[in-house]
Amino acid sequence: MELIPGLPNDLAFECLIRISFDQFPKASSVCRAWKAVIKQPEFLRRRKASGLTRPVIAICQSRFSLSRLDTVGFRLTLFDPVKRRWHDFPPIPEVVERMPVLCSVVGIGAELAVIGGCDPVTRRYLNSVFIYNFFSATWRRGADMPGEDRLFFGCAASEDGGTVVVAGGRSSTTTLALKSTLAYDVARDTWTTLSCGGLARDSSGKWIGGFTSNIGSCPPLMAEAWAALRGIQLAKALDLQQVILESDSKAIVDGITSNSLPNSLVHNLLATCRRELQGIRDWRIAWIPREQNATADALAKLAVSRPRGIHILPNPPTEIVPYLEYDCSSFFLWRYFAI
């Protein structure tokens, strides 16, 4: 089927990617072929590669009545700094009259997420997630944030636009800041829970100290980065000045040694790792196969059943002793691979 009569489809595709973002819904309604093309991931990728995307600013702002001086509600607006135009988002169906206050707004590819906030009338903390799609100009309800309710949290999207990370904030049940991190996979509409663990051993394999950390929800690579950071901090707390840091994540090893990891969410954690390593006189980092990291993996699994946060272990837990003894036995583990 021809996208545009009389034009080759590749040329028609080049025409479609030049449509302004605020015209996507109208273009999608022209015909099924246009709608199918615009919804393809390749459509947005080609727009970016051709330099046709531009930054926009989403703002949750108050609405004022001309006859009253007090605020009568909130709305979500979009500002296009290139064309210097304001656009109103359609109201979120579930909260038409009560748009959440102090919610977080984050862009994720061709979509925008409104996360959390509090009810403007009852001031109750909300864990709701609403997703707006620029192609269809429609809202959908996402999976609620798990765990403790929170407000004033940090929120950012990964560079690939697939994951939204929520960090910190304040709970309605305590005045203390939350230290947990959550991650939302937009495509799968799921929040995932991960943990990490690690230990310090002397040259003979004897336990010096360890930790478990129930991180909460975050991408797997971020959990690996947290494990590296907590391990370095453990070494400093034990005043270890000659350290070999081992990880079964090659991406983390390369990211610490060569600053080569492009993911901005993990980049900040690895930058902290490098700063912390400055306090250790002699150190190096090495990649090891997962089979040689059994004790750390067992500690990570143990962390899932523990309260959120980090737990320092002066002595090895009973469940970990068999793994520790196995690691000290110096048995070789065969790994099969194809060349």
Rank of each mutant, 00 (worst) to 15 (best):
R45T: 11
L151D: 06
H87A: 09
W34Q: 04
G154R: 02
C60A: 12
L151N: 06
T163M: 15
E94H: 10
R47E: 04
F79Y: 15
C103E: 07
F135S: 00
V96S: 09
W139V: 04
E148M: 12
F135G: 07
L76M: 04
P41K: 06
R140N: 07
D70C: 10
G107P: 01
C118P: 00
A156W: 02
G116P: 03
W34C: 08
A167H: 09
V95N: 06
R45S: 12
E42G: 03
L76Q: 04
V114T: 02
A33N: 14
F74E: 10
R45Y: 10
V105S: 03
V105E: 01
R47G: 02
V106I: 08
Y132V: 06
K35L: 01
C155R: 01
D160K: 06
N127A: 12
V105A: 01
P100S: 03
P100G: 00
C155Q: 07
Q61N: 12
F130L: 00
R45A: 14
P81W: 01
I131L: 13
L76K: 07
Q61M: 09
P91A: 01
Q61P: 05
R123G: 09
P41T: 03
G162C: 10
S29W: 00
K48L: 09
R124K: 12
D80R: 07
W86T: 03
D160A: 11
R68Q: 15
V121R: 08
D119K: 02
V56I: 14
M145N: 04
G147H: 07
T71G: 06
I38L: 15
V164K: 04
I59L: 15
M145Y: 06
P90F: 02
F130S: 14
R46E: 13
D160I: 03
D144E: 15
W34K: 10
A58C: 13
R54S: 11
P55K: 02
A113R: 00
Q40T: 14
Q40G: 15
Y125L: 10
V114Y: 00
L102K: 10
F134A: 05
P55D: 08
R150Y: 05
E42H: 12
P146C: 07
G117C: 07
T122S: 15
G168Y: 11
G51S: 07
S65G: 13
A156Q: 13
L69Y: 10
D144K: 13
T163A: 02
N127I: 00
V95W: 11
W34T: 03
P91M: 08
S67H: 09
F152V: 00
G154E: 06
L151Q: 07
S67L: 13
E159K: 12
S104H: 08
S136K: 01
I59F: 12
E94Q: 14
R32C: 00
V106Q: 13
